[in-house]
Structures are given as structure tokens and as C-alpha cells.
Design a protein around this nucleic acid. Structure first.
Lengths: 120, 120
DNA sequence: ATATTCCTTAGAGTAAACTCTAAGTCAAAT
DNA sequence: ATTTGACTTAGAGTTTACTCTAAGGAATAT
């Protein structure tokens, strides 16, 4: 069992963000006797997954959609599969763009280094 | 020589965006006798480069910084090199995250496919 | 010749994703 | 006992990067 502050620290996000995700129905922690949020390892695992999606540019709306499908249970398996496959495609595109730009930067950096060497 | 509309079409951005980039001093096209923007191949090349940086998550502020250094000429070579090297590092981090998430998604997708196969 | 489709400007509005404020409760630390 | 710091809520404010509006000028199409 973790408090919101502990989870925030573990994941490197703010407590504000965690409450925002809750408002968006992405995570629903348990509550203790005082009504305070209590997160379990299950919640931690889900949030870790969510952050991976977010880091790879999945918009919050889609993360919400996936979460909502998950809550609806077994009959949404196909829909969830489709969502993940679409995101996999999006990652492939991102990888291609990054690799291209990486090569371009490498060339530009070599040119700059050359320039500096000749100047000295 | 291209009009703003032509450049917008070629690059797949809106004319609004091109004017916004101009306001942010990222691109300064020539003007014709009526004061209308005229872009040359040089401008097109620069914008293509700028869009590559943007697609790989470089914030507009940094793109502005790079543009500004470029305009100041030779004495900013080192600073520009550093900026590009930093961005190269950022791309390396992004590539790592994407590759990890890609593998994770691949596993999850297999699990879902298995589930669906057993259900039928 | 009039309608359409560009173009111009300054500046207002929007969407996404936070990020913070205010007013208040509760519990551990000195 | 009171300060410190975490927690609660609803809702307002901020940042980034556009995106659009309004009011008007110029060139092409019917």
C-alpha cells in the first residue's frame, strides 16, 4: 500500500498529475478510513504501463479509451487488441523518423566538428 | 519561388503555422512588391530541417535558439554543435523508450491474440 | 463585373496536459 | 501545544503550439 506522495515519487510524476489521471478515470486507487488514496502494487503496475504509453506519445484520450475497455472486461478484447496494434504502428513510424533524423544530425555534427578543427 | 500556400502544401503544414514560425523568427521569407511572402528553395530546405527537429520532439524554443545562433554566424559554431549533440542524445533516449515499449506491446499483443484464439 | 481564392495584419481563441490555489482535515515531530 | 507536512476537494490558471477571426487588398475565373 502506497500513499499518493509515495507513488508520485516512485514514478517521478507529481501528486497533481496522479489526481488528474484519476479525474480522467485512468486510475482509481482505493481509499482508507479517512478517504485518503491508497495505491496497491496493482495500481503501480497499471500506472507504469500508462506512463510507457504516454512516453511513446499516446494521447491521454486514447489511454482513457484503453482503460475504459479494460474495465468493461472480456468482450472488449478485440477492441483493445486493435488499439495496441495501432499504437505499435505509431511506434514504428516514430522509430523511422527518429532514425532518419539521427543520421542527419550525425552528418551535421561531423561537418561542425570539421569546421571547428579547421578554425583552430 | 513559392507562395505561403505552396510551401504549406509541400510541407503539410498550415499557412497559419508558417506565419507563426515567422513570428517566432524561425523563418524569414522574402517579400514581393505587394509585401507578400515568397519562399525560395533555401527557405524550403531550412523548414524541412526544422520540421525534422520538431517531429523528434525538439521544442520550438530550442529551434528558435538554433535559428538565432545560425543567424549570428561563425562565432556560434560551438554553441550550435552543442545544441545538436544534446538533441542527438535526446533522440537516443527516445529510441530506447520506443524500443522497450515496442517489445512490451509485442508481448501484450501476442497474449491478446492467444486469448481470442482460445475463445473462438 | 462580380465571385472566388488567394494574400496581408494584429490579436483573440483553442486543445492538451498538466499545475497550482484555496480552504480545510489529520497526524507525527519538537 | 503548535508547527510541519501530508492529505482532501473543486475549480482556476498556465504552457505550448498552434489555429482561427476580422477586416481588408489583389489577382484569376466565369
Amino acid at each position: 500500500m502506497y500513499t499518493i506522495g509515495e507513488i508520485a515519487q516512485i514514478l517521478g510524476v507529481s501528486t497533481h498529475t496522479l489526481r488528474y489521471y484519476e479525474k480522467e478515470s485512468i486510475i482509481l486507487p482505493d481509499r482508507n478510513e479517512y478517504g485518503e488514496r491508497r495505491y496497491t502494487d496493482y495500481h503501480l503496475k497499471w500506472l507504469t504501463f500508462v506512463l510507457k504509453l504516454k512516453e511513446t506519445q499516446m494521447p491521454i484520450t486514447q489511454i482513457k479509451e484503453y482503460t475504459s475497455l479494460f474495465k468493461k472486461g472480456e468482450q472488449t478484447t478485440e477492441a483493445r487488441l486493435k488499439l495496441l496494434e495501432d499504437h505499435k504502428s505509431s511506434i514504428e513510424v516514430q522509430l523511422k523518423t527518429l532514425q532518419e533524423t539521427y543520421r542527419m544530425l550525425d552528418k551535421k555534427i561531423s561537418t561542425y566538428r570539421e569546421l571547428i578543427r579547421n578554425k583552430e
